[in-house]
């Protein structure tokens, strides 16, 4: 296998996706969930740039990656604000404890 930067980046994309999916399935903390989402989005950004580079349209890949970074930042901000409100009102960040709450 040729170890060009793009091939190595492909391994990085797959690795980040695997780590992110595993973390998403295993994490119970709301703030940690946002951290795992950030890891998944980093895999998407790297994949977009890699695909743009491979197709000879690096600027198009960069433009799309820039949009993804902005959207991801907004998701992180809103997710953290939601986690803070959940912590204030329910006293916990545990997703499992929140799922078992009864009105």
């Amino acid at each position: 296998m040729n170890l060009a930067p793009l091939n190595v980046a492909l391994v990085g994309v797959l690795g980040l996706l695997g780590i992110g999916m595993y973390g998403l399935l295993m994490t119970r903390n709301l703030i940690k969930t946002v951290i795992v989402l950030q890891i998944l989005v980093k895999a998407a950004v790297l994949a977009l740039v890699m695909a743009g580079s491979a197709a000879g349209q690096i600027h198009l890949g960069q433009s799309l990656a820039l949009t993804v970074i902005v959207a991801d930042t907004i998701v992180a901000v809103v997710g953290l604000a939601l986690a803070i409100q959940v912590r204030r009102r329910c006293g916990t960040l545990d997703v499992q404890a929140l799922a078992t709450l009864r009105r």
């Binding site: 040729n2 060009a4 793009l6 091939n7 890699m50 000879g56 690096i58 600027h59 433009s63």
Partner: peptide, 11 residues
């Protein structure tokens, strides 16, 4: 995916 080339258009 062995190599990449810069596009002609400006960013």
């Amino acid at each position: 995916l062995a190599g990449f080339t810069a596009g002609t258009a400006d960013f």
